Amino acid sequence: MSGPSPDEREPARYEMRVGGHLDDHWSAWFGGSTLTRESDGTTTMRGPVVDQAALHGLLDRIRDLGVTLISVQAVSGPRHGHCPDTDIDGGRS
């Protein structure tokens, strides 16, 4: 028995933190991610990412915007599972 087809899987959810406060209008540019302005002067973006190409696209947009990328974390896997808390280089948080 095989697992769900790629079309049946839910996208992975990611949390990305950047330096500075981004206004809500940037949400659409970042694929509809939820933007939360934190008290420490950073913004946390949370939302689904359909695949690695889409993740790299979001990272490119962060670079193009000129803000500092602080962290990237997968908060759930593509098939309802939970991913371990890891940062972009695979270390434990």
Rank of each mutant, 00 (worst) to 15 (best):
R37P: 12
P6L: 10
S2Y: 05
W26R: 05
S27G: 05
H21Q: 09
V49S: 05
S33M: 11
S33L: 04
Y14K: 05
H80S: 07
S33A: 10
T44A: 14
T86M: 07
P48Y: 01
Y14Q: 10
V75C: 07
S2R: 12
A28D: 11
R79F: 05
S2D: 12
V72N: 09
V18N: 03
V50Q: 14
L59R: 15
A54L: 00
A53R: 15
D87V: 15
T86P: 00
R17M: 13
D85E: 10
D24R: 05
R46F: 02
V75F: 02
G90E: 01
A12L: 03
E8T: 04
T34D: 05
G91V: 05
H56N: 03
T86H: 12
G19Q: 02
L22W: 12
R46W: 01
G77A: 11
T34P: 00
W29V: 14
P11T: 00
C83L: 15
L59K: 14
P78R: 11
D40F: 03
Q52M: 07
P48I: 09
L59P: 03
G77V: 06
M16A: 10
G90D: 02
A12C: 08
E8A: 06
D89A: 02
W29D: 15
S39E: 13
A74N: 06
S33Y: 14
S76H: 12
V50C: 00
G77C: 08
M16N: 07
R17L: 07
D7H: 08
C83V: 15
D85Q: 08
H21S: 12
D85G: 01
E10R: 14
T42Y: 14
G77M: 07
A74W: 01
T44P: 00
S39N: 05
A54R: 13
A53M: 07
F30R: 02
T68S: 11
D85M: 09
G31H: 15
E8K: 07
V75M: 00
R61T: 05
H21R: 05
D85K: 01
T43W: 07
Q52T: 06
T68H: 06
C83Y: 08
D51F: 09
L69E: 11
G57Q: 10
L59Q: 09
G57T: 12
E15I: 04
T36W: 05
V72W: 07
P78C: 02
G31F: 15
